[in-house]
Design a protein around this nucleic acid. Sequence first.
RNA 1: GCGGAAGUGGCGGAACUGGUAGACGCGCUGGACUUAGGAUCCAGUGGAGCAAUCCGUGGGGGUUCGAGUCCCCCCUUUCGCACCA
Length: 816
Amino acid sequence: MNAIPHEETTGYDPTAIEEKWRRIWSEHRTNIADIAGAADPFYALMMFPYPSAEGLHVGNLFAFVGNDIYGRFQRLQGHNVFEPLGYDAFGIHSENYALKVGQHPMELIPQNIVNFRRQLERAGLMVDWTKSLATTDPDYYKWTQWVFLQLLKHGLAYKKQAAVNWCPSCKTVLANEQVIGGACERCDTPVEQRFLSQWFFRISDYAERLLTNLDRLDWSETTKTAQRNWIGRSEGAQIIFPATTGGGDVIPVFTTRPDTIFGGTYLVLAPEHPMVAELTSSVYKSAVDRYLALSAKQDVVTRKSSTEKTGVFTGAHATNPATGEDIPIWISDYVLMEYGTGAIMAVPGHDERDFEFASVFGLPIVRVVCAEGEDATTPLSGAFTESGNGVLVNSGRFDGMRVEEAKSAIVEMLTAKSSGSPIVNYRLHDWCISRQRYWGPPIPIIYCDECGAVPVPEDDLPVVLPYVEDFKPDDSGMSPLARHESWYRVACPKCNRMARRETDVSDTFLDSAWYFLRYPSVGIDEVPFDPGITQRWLPVNSYIGGNEHAVLHLLYSRFVTMVLHDMGFLGFDEPYRRFRAHGLIVRNGSKMSKSRGNVVVPDEYIDKWGADAFRMYLMFLGPFEEGGDFRDASISGVKRFLDRLWASVGAATDQGSVDRAPDRDVMRKLHQTIRKVGDDIPRLSYNTAVAAMMEYMNVLRRGERVPARDEVEPVVQLVSPFAPHIAEELWEKLGHSGSVFDSGWPAFDSDRATDETISLVVQVNGKTRGTVSVARDIGQDDAVAAAMQEPSIAKFVTGPPRKIIFVPGRLLNIVA
RNA sequence: GCGGAAGUGGCGGAACUGGUAGACGCGCUGGACUUAGGAUCCAGUGGAGCAAUCCGUGGGGGUUCGAGUCCCCCCUUUCGCACCA
């Protein structure tokens, strides 16, 4: 209580100046971009947050500050920067929370947004709040529904009965990517299979383009890799196996190893395969039915996690087109309906899963590839899956061929007899956008007995989500909206007969798949995005966000952009020119989460240290793209730096000190720092940029020297992206009237940054023995002479030098 | 299993195309100013040694005048994906 507030010793009172400058920014519209007229637009986008009730946590702030620094830097480079921020407020997360606390999301979300906005503003972000949006606003989701209708119109949205992941706890369908290890990503409940009629987007039609475009994107390599893996391109062949039973049925299979076809001793169908029923012979029918029932009942977790092989014989056979032999057709749940054709040719000799299955059921195992030193008769103790040096055996005229060669030769042979063809297969599935929940935009479809599924006319959008008290999902697999007849009863837009609205809502990922298109056009009601504005501002120059969205959000928004481009709405087909994933802030080595009780709320830190110090600390604790451990101990370091900056400007602007001449060495260090900070910020190497400024501060104040004005003024500009409030205040103190953010970046003078003498590293036999201070442009002979003057170096040179390595300006190595 | 990233002081982390390893910060030690300081400032701080010097970037080899950095083989951590045919 009698502690002297720190501000009294330095005069730096963060709370006061931060409030002051936020007020001035607001009054002067400093952060508002000139959307219509910007000559040099720069769109600095960050992933928008879900406005949770707990409020903003430092992880969010870390990302936003990182983006803000980049945006402010671009502004200092002369660009017209647009930095919008909105809220991703629909979705199960909000809905579940609303259910938990017993409050309606339509009340809860606006409260959360107010709180979020307050917290975000305190951080001093250069956000243009006049262009904010919330996905839950009908003015926004009207256009989300419009996007759906465009896809529908172009045949890219379709409805199908599909096995879906059902979370019995959240009572909803989950996308494949929301299922983690067979369990719900949100509540860890084992996921079940259900068959529901769902809306899908044909993203798989775009698989190849989504993959190849990656090569020309300036994105974090890790993110591109994740997308490539997710798309899962795999080259192989489709091979057709004619069934010997039944009426001329054929079974197509996908394989990446057509070279092993002579070893294909049986076929396996997924239990859900549509041909199972007609292929099964009467003798085996009851056994097959039993197996199908069993696997249908089984939840996805056990099915996908147990590698124990189960299965049943159908009684049917097919002909191997290579060997001409009849091989049995089996059913097993190790074959997945959603990949390839839902059927495989089993080659137990060269596939581990097939080997295991064949071993369990006593099916024949034939070797068709052998390694060096093996031959056709070498017994197989397990599947031989290496293909590098493999040579074919037991494969008729293909014997002796290497695997790679045989792949194409065999596909060619099969193609010639119309038994197969080369094919590319993708792991990427179509995007299921139906959600049997309440808290999302209703899918704009009306079902009419006469006309079928009729799109809601665009003029009738939005289909407003009604306020209903009972929004809790149930076990029916139907959306809560299906319980509200007054809402879903509607006239068919085509024939005017009584019809029924689609009662499912769409996936939140659809909301976020196009939001970046909307920001610059916020406030325009006639179109989702104005063509002129869009052309001026997009694609996004810089996008920063978490790698947890590396596949889903980023892939979906790329897809929607491509689709809108192909329809003629956009002049570009990739939404983000540059993407960088930020790291994760952890606490005591583990991810921050409420359950661990280690969530750090920014407010208390901002109260104590100020937003500027807190921002700077977040950027200093580790590489931005890697994140780091939050430990409050080292905030004092950056606070001290700001105190010293404050004091330096104070000293430099004191009466009578204005004319002090800058020191040559200090100015050299200053220019080195200008270069370093200017190089580091675009690379998002914020931690080293901060370090460089601290280093300069040490030079500036070394030995308690009093800094000159020219030595400190540029530092205010350098620090401004990191600590915007104090920078504005100091800029004002230095006598400027406009915002520091309109002052430009300090000029770098390479002559002033260069030392005329350097300290040359001298090695003897590769070991560093000292340094000599010499002229920058010294030649080799003079350098050797200078080095030999130093007894501490010369004593290691025992004989005449055999060799001299001289790197001008850097190093001298005398090899004796 | 497949794919990615990473192992550097007591701690967080620096180190551009191979060229003084440990910048910067925290912490610690000593000092200055002080009634006092958990404030501020100055200096020091990888390990061993009185010193000259030696040893040091997960481990082991290699290339090189010179390796944290390049190559090969291991070990560990971590994050994605995972019966994907």
